[in-house]
Computed example of a mutant assay.
Amino acid sequence: MINSNVTVELQKLEKLLNKVGDLVITNSMMSQSIDNLPYSEEKKNLLEKINIFQRHIVELQEYATDIRMIKFESMYGIYNDIILELMPKNKSIKLEILGGNTKVDKSLIEQLDSSIKTLITNSVLYGIEETQERINKNKPIESTIKIIAQQLNGQISFSIENDGKGLNKEEITEDYILENQEDSQLKGIEKIKEIIERLNGNIEIQSELIDGFSFTMTLPLTHSILEGLNIKIGNNIFILPTSSIVESIQPTNEMIKLVGDGSTPLLMLRDEFIPIIKLHEHFHIESKNQILEDGILIIVKSGIQKAALFIDEFLQQQQIVVKAIETNFRKVDSVAGATVRGDGSIGIIIDVKSILEK
């Protein structure tokens, strides 16, 4: 029987994906040029053809991306074998993978392989308590190591968590990490940090003394095409990923509630209080509207967190190619990446997750 598999160099797939991205940008330029034409039957026909062309580009991008992607759940066996091999007889540990359907670039998994394995090893050897200690703490005898993969706003994150021993928040400092590299959950962290920074990513450590330890690696997607909504704040236009948007409203006075000293507004929507974030204040730019009732509130969500973003107005929705800013500049707070607009200008993509976490 003839083998149906073929071997393709990763570099060739890289070039293919780059060309797909160029097609998206070119399509955006053509679409904008057609929009600027006076209305006619010819313009209507051209817009219909552009929409068909865009659908073909989306399919092509999905096919090209799928070639070099794997479902993260396929790594379960490899990571579980590490646990079984290292687990002492006086410990009971199970592995859970959340977000297993998340598709991950094979080359990215290869670059993160040693980091994920180091964090699993640290959890097994130093993080998870022995069975008797867990009984004394009224914890389940069987402990859990979770690996969580999720993709959002042109970024992908991997979190390795365990329900074992944690650290005091005061201990999670750069000096403490440097001084405690041996026989602890922080073993090898500096090496992991170097790898993540080389990939233009960042790390986050969360820990409670009793509740366990969590290590998250967040990296920009090198090839990502997503739907974005153009929003206007003063004279500035930003892009908000539609995957983060729940709904948009123009609030009435009755919907706005002030708390504390009266300077902190909340949106009351269907018996739910949602914090309001004024993006012009967040980005330190001028806004056309200062009164909430005169502008638009876009409700966004990241994980379990939700907020209402105050803007002047929203414009058209479009498909965009996400480019990592860190590659040629540096990481910018609250920015997930950038894109080239149809008129050739640069569009800034808002990082909803980082804004909501502040």
Rank of each mutant, 00 (worst) to 15 (best):
D66I: 12
D66N: 15
D66C: 13
I67E: 12
I67F: 07
I67C: 10
R68H: 11
R68K: 14
R68E: 09
R68G: 15
R68Q: 13
M69E: 10
M69N: 11
M69A: 05
M69L: 15
M69I: 02
I70P: 02
I70G: 00
I70E: 07
K71R: 13
K71F: 08
K71I: 11
K71Q: 13
K71W: 12
F72S: 03
F72N: 01
F72I: 01
E73T: 07
E73L: 11
E73K: 06
E73Q: 15
E73I: 11
S74R: 06
S74M: 08
S74I: 06
S74T: 08
S74D: 10
S74A: 03
M75I: 10
M75S: 09
M75K: 15
Y76I: 08
Y76S: 13
Y76P: 01
G77V: 11
G77R: 11
G77T: 15
G77P: 12
G77E: 08
G77S: 15
I78C: 09
Y79K: 04
Y79H: 07
Y79F: 15
Y79P: 02
Y79I: 13
Y79W: 10
N80A: 14
N80R: 08
N80Q: 11
N80E: 05
N80Y: 11
N80P: 08
N80V: 09
N80C: 06
N80S: 13
D81S: 14
D81P: 05
D81G: 08
I82G: 03
I82A: 05
I82P: 03
I82T: 12
I82K: 10
I82C: 06
I82H: 06
I83F: 01
I83A: 03
I83M: 05
L84P: 03
E85G: 14
E85W: 13
E85N: 14
E85P: 08
E85L: 11
E85K: 14
L86S: 02
L86T: 00
L86E: 03
L86M: 05
L86D: 05
L86R: 05
L86P: 00
L86C: 07
L86W: 04
M87V: 04
M87W: 02
P88I: 03
P88A: 09
P88V: 00
P88Q: 03
K89A: 10
N90T: 09
N90P: 13
N90Y: 12
N90D: 13
K91Q: 14
K91P: 00
K91G: 00
K91A: 00
S92L: 10
S92Y: 02
I93A: 00
I93Y: 00
I93D: 00
I93S: 00
I93G: 00
K94T: 08
K94R: 15
K94A: 11
K94I: 07
K94D: 09
K94V: 10
K94C: 05
L95W: 00
L95Y: 10
L95N: 03
L95P: 02
L95E: 01
L95C: 09
L95F: 04
L95A: 02
E96T: 05
E96S: 07
